[in-house]
Design a protein around this nucleic acid. Structure first.
Length: 218
DNA sequence: GTCCAGGGCCTAC
DNA sequence: GTAGGCCATGGA
């Protein structure tokens, strides 16, 4: 078994299926992907609950709601002014180019679609890949800060790779299965939330024996 | 009080 | 092309 699959298996054995992305619709996932930028998911849940109560989890409503009202609804998610703008830019694009139909957008050819998302202000690579993988079930590995941190510690990355390099690292080594991509990213998050934050401690970590950081710092 | 979270943009060198 | 500042809330 490849090294990446072996690590995957250890994480899956420890944490089980993560059932990502937690949302009731693809559009809600896309909105959540923007709201969770550099923000604890707990806070995002509050914002999404507010949007749901206001019946504002649709493209049409996000497009037409007053900016200040949208800001107030998503306030718990932090960075609420930027995020309100980003939600409306994304929804406006969806309305203008795909008649507001997210499924239609997500069925487009992968790489051009990814580039199209990246051209939108406020959608960077992680947000784009989250939308593609989780809302669209498209084959695009999601990289985040945890990913680089964990695989550097495991000695599989140097630590100075750019986003696209890390994404390619996984995509050229893993079987082309969206279910695997989905679970792997979610498991990395679960792992890092429990063990690999900024503190240099791997005790009890399911990857303990593989973790070169621990070998270097017993 | 301090640190951090499932980033991304902008500006200055 | 890249390091540093900025955006903001809420929980640990």
């Amino acid at each position: 078994m490849s090294e990446l699959l072996s690590i995957y298996q250890k994480l899956f054995d420890r944490y089980g299926p993560r059932n990502w992305w937690p949302a009731e619709s693809a559009f809600e996932m896309a909105i959540g992907a923007i709201l969770t930028q550099n923000t604890n998911w707990n806070n995002v849940e509050k914002a999404i609950a507010n949007l749901r109560s206001a019946d504002a989890l649709t493209c049409r409503k996000i497009c037409t709601i007053e900016r200040l009202e949208l800001e107030a609804l998503i306030r718990p998610a932090g960075f609420f002014r930027q995020k309100a703008e980003r939600l409306q830019l994304f929804s406006g694009h969806l309305r203008d180019r795909y008649q507001g139909c997210l499924d239609k957008m997500l069925r487009q050819p992968l790489e051009p679609l990814r580039e199209e998302l990246l051209e939108l202000k406020g959608i960077g690579p992680e947000t784009a890949d989250s939308m593609l993988l989780y809302a669209g079930e498209r084959l695009s590995f999601v990289v985040d800060a945890y990913t680089g941190r964990l695989f550097s510690r495991l000695g599989l990355l140097r630590g100075d790779e750019k986003y696209e390099q890390i994404r390619s690292f996984f995509m050229t080594r893993l079987p082309a299965e969206t279910g695997l991509y989905n679970e792997y990213h979610a498991l990395i998050v679960a792992q890092c939330k429990e063990h690999c934050r900024k503190r240099p401690l791997c005790r009890g970590c399911p990857l303990e024996k593989d973790c070169i950081y621990r070998q270097q710092n017993p």
